[in-house]
């Protein structure tokens, strides 16, 4: 039977991982969105030929080891301080591309100050914001974006407003700031939304090149381990419970708020 297969080098390559991703096997849990986001980000960097001009910042969270996988210069940042670190890099290297890659705890709890002020300064960086509504790295505690009623290790009865306040829609907040140029909410759990996400990333890098200012891409993502679900269950749960609170789509394009902004 083997003899009937054509030789490997005669086969047409229809898919390959981007050369900007290393060969290191990822540590992410099966079904987690981080892997897809990493791949798309690196694919765009490869397609735009900006590998040698891009510096990434990965703060503490599940993606703290992003530099294992992304074959670009990277800095690891303290928990919450990615926007400040990215600012420092960008201000010294204004013609390079700088992005940060942050979780919801990082971006919207401990790092809220740095996040808001970087946006408000119109810092010319791209912020990728993974909203999985939970603290993945530390084992499934409540995040600022945890939705009401959602059970986590620190909200065993479900999040309630009386003790924990409301899910923090920081992306909506940032869209209101004049320094923010492009603000969008995406997902990566189906081929169709992955294509949308890729377009958003491409656009954001183009804006950065044109010195348009701050771009934020929120990715509503699953966390099968933290949510204690199978990957399939988690995607379904995300669509049914997360999307109503965090609806996908552009909130601000070309510095102008869209109707989606609620």
């Amino acid at each position: 039977m083997n003899s009937e297969l054509p030789p490997l080098d005669s086969l047409e390559c229809v898919w390959a991982k981007p050369s900007t991703l290393t060969d290191t096997p990822m540590h992410y849990c099966p079904g987690c969105g981080h892997g897809v986001v990493h791949k798309i980000l690196m694919e765009v960097i490869q397609e735009l030929h900006i590998q040698s001009e891009t510096i990434g910042v990965a703060p503490v969270g599940c993606s703290v080891f992003a530099y294992y996988y992304m074959d670009i210069d990277m800095q690891e940042a303290a928990h919450g301080r990615a926007a400040a670190v990215a600012t420092g890099i960008k201000r010294m290297l204004p013609d390079k591309y700088v992005f940060s890659y942050q979780g919801d705890g990082d971006l919207a709890a401990i790092g809220t100050g740095e996040t808001i002020h970087a946006a408000n300064r119109g810092e010319n960086i791209l912020v990728i914001f993974i909203n999985n509504a939970i603290y993945g790295m530390t084992g499934g505690q409540m995040a600022p974006t945890t939705i009401l009623g959602m059970k986590t290790t620190t909200t065993p009865e479900g999040r309630d407003t009386e003790t924990q306040g409301f899910p923090f829609k920081i992306t909506e907040l940032i869209a209101m700031l004049p320094g923010a140029y492009y603000v969008t909410r995406q997902a990566v759990h189906t081929p169709n939304v992955v294509r949308q996400f890729k377009k958003a990333v491409t656009k954001a890098f183009q804006y950065q090149k044109d010195k348009k200012g701050y771009c934020l891409i929120e990715v509503v993502s699953n966390c099968p381990s933290g949510w204690k679900m199978t990957p399939l269950e988690s995607n379904k749960w995300m669509e049914q419970n997360m999307f109503p609170v965090y609806p996908l789509g552009d909130l601000k394009v070309d510095g102008k708020l869209t109707e989606k902004k609620s």
Binding site: V57, Q75, A77, A78, R81, A84, V85, A86, T87, G88, I89, K90, R91, M92, E114
Partner: peptide, 8 residues
């Protein structure tokens, strides 16, 4: 942390 980024 800006010093960190910029020094880096």
């Amino acid at each position: 942390n800006m010093v960190y980024g910029a020094a880096g």
